[in-house]
Write a protein that binds this DNA or RNA. Structure first.
Lengths: 112, 112
DNA sequence: CGCCTTTATGCGGCTATCGTCATAAGCATG
DNA sequence: CATGCTTATGACGATAGCCGCATAAAGGCG
């Protein structure tokens, strides 16, 4: 039986949704995956993703404001890196769910 | 040191982002919160959220296709309920992060 | 100081999605 | 069957967000 906790306030709901929205775009997820492999400068992110410099700059800015990435200045260059394990943990949970659903769909197909 | 796993394929990235996109809208999050408290029929969801019937129907459809909610037919009425703990787990992780960030901001303010 | 490299931002086109209204489809009852 | 109640879907206006182009700002080098 589900616990009957109180409902979250609209403001909190808004915070949650804004956070999840960050992860709802393949471009940002791709950047996070790149940075999960280790620190990268913007040039290599451009090369790896094919996005324009301005786009990458904006997305990194959003991720930084959310505390998901941070950067170290090396002169005029900026080296970005992932911060924290949150995204990995979230993706692991989601991956488990996705796998379960695919397996059940597979079972459905095979039972025909 | 971060593990240097392989990069996810674009298709997988798309799957992840589509899933997170479901949670990136306050309306859907609100529905999920309502259903987390227990099964509800559509009329009570309309009353609780103020959204139109058509909108709620669409959002529930999306959540259902993702396996986050499911429904039992009671004659012509449909009773919806949350399915699985995934959303709760995800929100718990995010909440921890949000709290940490607010606390650190608070500490910053107090150190002035 | 001029020049180059690198990052941040204003602007605008484009697409996707939100949310509503109107309507259709399905099921129960008199 | 006709009526009423509940849910699903087509159409549409409004808005938000993606993404690139052009340009400004900031730092390094001769």
């Amino acid at each position: 039986m589900a616990a009957a906790g109180s409902l979250p306030s609209p403001q909190l709901l808004e915070e949650y949704s804004q956070f999840f929205r960050l992860l709802s775009e393949p471009a940002r997820l791709q950047l996070l995956c790149q940075l999960r492999q280790g620190p990268r400068d913007v040039a290599s992110l451009i090369a790896a993703t094919g996005f324009s410099q301005s786009h990458i700059s904006r997305q990194l800015g959003q991720l930084q404001r959310a505390g998901l990435v941070c950067c170290d200045r090396e002169g005029v260059r900026t080296i970005w890196r992932a911060e924290g394990e949150l995204v990995d943990d979230l993706c692991a949970l989601v991956q488990t769910r996705l796998r379960q659903r695919l397996q059940s769909q597979l079972a459905q197909l095979q039972s025909l």
